[in-house]
Each structure stands twice: as C-alpha cells, then as structure tokens.
Simulated scan of single mutants.
Amino acid sequence: MPSARDSIYATLRSRLTSGHYAEDASLIPQVLSEEFQVSRTPVREALGLLERDGLLVSTQRGFALRKRSDEEMLEIFEARAVLESSAAYAAALRRSPIDVARLDDLLTRTRAEGEPEGIRRCFNLWHEAVRQAAHNQTIGSLLHTLDAQAKLSAPWKTPLAEGTFDASIAEHETMTEAIRSQDAERARALMLEHQAHDRDTRILQLVSQMARTAPVDQLPPVHSGRRSTY
C-alpha cells in the first residue's frame, strides 16, 4: 500500500501534468495538508519530490509551478527524443511475444477510439509499452520525468489539426512492425522522426496559443526549420 507521501505525490503530479493548476498557482503545505487530511510532513516530502522532478520551485510561502523558457522546452523535447529512440532500438532487440502482443492490442484500441482524449490515452499507453519492451528501467525512469516536464509547460490540451491523429497512428503502426521484425536501426530512426513531428506540432500550438493571448509586438520570433541534431 502506498505511503501518504507517495499518494500525495501521485495526485499532485497528475494535477500538474493535466493543467489542474493555474500558471501562477501557489502550493502551500498547510493548505494541502488540510485538503489531504494529513500532517505537513508527507506533504512537504511530496512537494520536495516534485521539485526534484523539475515541476515545482520553492518560494517563501510554499511552491510555485516551474516556468521554462522556449529554449528549455526545445531541450526537453530533444532529450526525450534521444531516449525514446533508444527505447525503440532496445525494444526491437529485446521484445518478447507478450511485448509485441501488447503493442498490437494498443494499436487496435487506438483505431477503435472515437474521442480525442481516448486516442491520446492510447498513444501514451503505446509509448509506455515500447519502454516496457526495452527492458531498461533507467530509460523508463528518465522518460517518466521528462514527460511530466513537457506536459507541465507545453499546450497538450489544445486542439490538434485534422489528420494529426491519423498520421500518428500510422507512425505507431510502422514502428510496431520494426520492433516486431527486430529491425533496431529502423525502429530508432522511425521514433526520432515521430518525436520530431510531435515536437514541431507542439511548437506550432504554443505559438498559436501565445498569439491568442499576447499583443503581436510581444510574440517571440518563430525560428522555422529548426530540427533536432541527434
């Protein structure tokens, strides 16, 4: 059974990565301890873990959401792409029949989903299945942290352009076949390309989101054509 600290950590992490808190929210240990009906010790420990994960920063009153620059977000996307491609490479070499069956099942569930949130959930589960097939806990742990950092700062909940889901599903299918056939280099290359597409989509969403909320003269310059160098 998880400890109070671990339960609070999991709840707060889920809130942070799903847009539950406003950007200027302040997480105060006393307030949270009253909400969770526990002492401040497990709350402070959970907040400390979230700060270690790069999701929060300590303040005089408590903790604030960590804000990242555009350059930091690009660094997170690049680091995640390197690790995701390494996971795909390892998965192609180490996957078991159960791993392949899990990937196939998630593809079937994705195609059957009719709601965007359900498709997103299947996408996340498919990537988690690739990481499991890699049988490398270090890569999985690092990606778990980078996922949270990206979701906290990137506009994951904004609408996607028509056809985005179809393109991603097709890419997942192609990568699954590379993993099934144990073509490690192809799996790695396909995952790098897939991650680059995801990064570019999120950058365009971020610029679009900023355009709706900021005066034109305050918008940052858009550096088109920047690609990952890994």
Rank of each mutant, 00 (worst) to 15 (best):
Glu78Arg: 10
Glu78Trp: 09
Glu78Lys: 06
Glu78Val: 13
Ala79Ser: 13
Ala79Pro: 00
Arg80Met: 07
Arg80Tyr: 05
Ala81Tyr: 02
Ala81Pro: 04
Ala81Arg: 05
Val82Asn: 02
Val82Leu: 14
Leu83Trp: 01
Leu83Val: 08
Ser85Asp: 03
Ser85Arg: 03
Ser85Ile: 05
Ser85His: 01
Ser86Gly: 12
Ser86Ala: 15
Ser86Tyr: 05
Ala87Cys: 08
Ala87Pro: 01
Ala88Phe: 02
Ala88His: 02
Tyr89Pro: 01
Tyr89Met: 09
Tyr89Glu: 11
Tyr89Thr: 00
Ala90Phe: 10
Ala90Ser: 11
Ala90Leu: 15
Ala91Cys: 06
Ala92Val: 07
Ala92Pro: 01
Arg94Phe: 04
Arg94Asn: 12
Arg95Met: 05
Ser96Asp: 07
Ser96Ile: 07
Ser96Gly: 07
Pro97Gln: 03
Pro97Trp: 04
Pro97Ile: 08
Pro97Asn: 04
Pro97Phe: 07
Asp99Cys: 06
Asp99Ser: 13
Asp99Gln: 01
Asp99Asn: 10
Val100Ser: 02
Val100Lys: 02
Val100Tyr: 06
Ala101Ser: 12
Ala101Lys: 09
Ala101Gln: 11
Arg102Asn: 09
Leu103Glu: 01
Asp104Val: 08
Asp104Thr: 10
Asp104Ile: 04
Asp105Pro: 00
Asp105Asn: 11
Leu106Met: 07
Leu106Glu: 02
Leu107Val: 10
Leu107Arg: 08
Leu107Ser: 05
Leu107Pro: 01
Thr108Trp: 03
Thr108Asp: 13
Thr108Phe: 10
Thr108Met: 10
Arg109Gly: 09
Arg109Val: 09
Thr110Ser: 10
Thr110Pro: 00
Thr110Leu: 15
Arg111Trp: 08
Arg111His: 11
Arg111Ala: 15
Arg111Met: 10
Ala112Leu: 14
Ala112Val: 12
Glu113Trp: 03
Glu113Arg: 12
Gly114Cys: 08
Gly114Tyr: 09
Gly114Phe: 10
Glu115Asp: 15
Glu115Phe: 13
Pro116Val: 14
Gly118Cys: 12
Gly118Val: 14
Gly118Phe: 10
Ile119Gly: 00
Ile119Met: 13
Arg120Tyr: 09
Arg120Val: 13
Cys122Phe: 03
Cys122Val: 11
Phe123Asn: 10
Asn124Ala: 15
Asn124Thr: 15
Asn124His: 11
Asn124Asp: 15
Leu125Gly: 01
Leu125Trp: 05
Leu125His: 11
Trp126Gln: 05
Trp126Ser: 04
Trp126Cys: 03
Trp126Met: 05
His127Val: 12
His127Leu: 14
Glu128Asp: 14
Glu128Ala: 15
Ala129Phe: 02
Ala129Glu: 02
Ala129Gln: 03
Val130Arg: 00
Arg131Leu: 11
Arg131Ile: 04
Gln132Ser: 11
Ala133Gln: 01
Ala133Pro: 01
Ala134Tyr: 01
Ala134Lys: 00
His135Gly: 07
His135Lys: 11
His135Gln: 14
Asn136Gly: 02
Gln137Leu: 13
Ile139Met: 10
Ile139Glu: 04
Ile139Trp: 08
Ile139Thr: 08
Ile139Ala: 08
Gly140Asp: 05
Gly140Tyr: 00
Gly140Ile: 05
Ser141Leu: 12
Leu142Tyr: 06
Leu142Trp: 06
Leu142Val: 13
Thr145Pro: 00
Leu146Ile: 07
Leu146Gln: 04
Asp147Phe: 06
Asp147Trp: 05
Asp147Cys: 07
Gln149Glu: 11
Ala150Gly: 04
